[in-house]
Design a protein around this nucleic acid. Structure first.
Lengths: 196, 196
DNA sequence: TCCGTGATAGCAGTGACTGCTATCAGCGTA
DNA sequence: TACGCTGATAGCAGTCACTGCTATCACGGA
């Protein structure tokens, strides 16, 4: 046994979310989180760059998984299909824990700082997917266009799903979103003047 | 003449940008900005909710203009064409002042807080455009899909343009981005299974 | 002439985050 | 067995964004 309890990051994250749920994000201080995890405030800020980050560890893991899925997709898969498959997989995972998603979404929606960070993390997620596409040969700007767009559709699908998580299928919302977007873009007046 | 100099917000914004350029965003304190504009720190934080906001006034004006353009577009204009026209107009405006765009972009790129706020402001911009679309009868999720996607393509076009502002045409980059995205989405395996 | 109004000055916090130093368990090494 | 090295934590002190409260003062109207 070490001198201190194991898994300090995990303990801090757990303590933080418990406190955020109980009394709100703003009302929870770094010192309180640290104390609940049995450590010093200073250790909290050494392990997490700021108070918001505690919330987004899972997203980074999800990003790595998505990137791996994209890189490992069959060679003949179109870029948009590779990212769509990765995000559809994520839809399925999220749908398995509607309660957790709801709690998380509630906390994020209630706080402007967390909303901003959420946006920023999802942008990073999209950037990672674009990088994965490039690794498999997709050129720019196609890689970024596909990744950012798929992420955008995912977020729209998620926002619709979270309203009634029990009565809608998230992967279907996502797929239908992509289809609807395709038809929106195709029926546009600019279609003819592709290169000028 | 009033008791104080006129246009306090404008003076503060000017002082702030000058200091940000000279010594960086982080190194500039609210008190310094206020002092340079000849007022008290407290007044700065009464006029701007936080230090970052000084930077994004112009964007809110642009958003209002874009929303108006969308609402006022001819009735038979497709949603995507309405938002695309509004953003193309914005492209043209930005291109008229490449120096300003470059300075601004440099400052934002150099600071994580400003990048986050930039993301958040553009998300708000897209939300506003979706609202404008809804006002002219576009249903959801089409309105949000069109607005978010167009904004995404705009940002990608801007990022490419800012690399060499003198040698590329921003409106063209934006239009071509939309076209490329359309072709990416159409050539996707999921196309056939629109509704399941 | 007096008073309500609106905007600013100025003070006194709170809390996120940082730099620095002291401390201590575990471990390789002589 | 003793010693010093390493890596992680405790704890202190400080900066700065941001807030609530109060006093002040020019201006315009009754």
């Amino acid at each position: 046994m070490g001198r201190w309890e194991p898994n300090p990051r995990g303990r801090l994250a757990k303590a933080a979310v418990e406190l955020f749920v109980a009394q709100g994000f703003e009302q929870t201080t770094g010192a309180q989180i640290a104390a609940r995890a049995g450590m010093h405030e200073r250790s909290f800020f050494r392990l997490f760059p700021d108070k918001r980050e505690v919330f987004f560890q899972a997203l980074e893991t999800a990003q790595r998984e998505a990137m791996a899925a994209i890189v490992d997709a069959p060679e003949d898969t179109a870029p948009i299909d590779a990212v769509a498959a990765a995000l559809e997989q994520r839809c399925a995972v999220i749908q398995q824990h509607p309660g957790a998603a709801l709690t998380r979404h509630g906390l994020i929606a209630a706080n402007a700082e967390l909303r901003e960070r959420d946006l920023s993390k999802h942008a990073e997620f999209a950037t990672g997917m674009a990088e994965a596409l490039r690794e498999r040969g997709t050129p720019e700007p196609a890689a970024t266009l596909a990744a950012d767009t798929a992420m955008g559709v995912f977020r729209i699908a998620f926002d619709r799903w979270i309203g009634e998580p029990e009565h809608q299928d998230l992967p279907t919302l996502f797929r239908d979103g992509l289809s609807e977007l395709a038809s929106i873009l195709v029926h546009r007046a600019g279609t003819a003047r592709r290169s000028r």
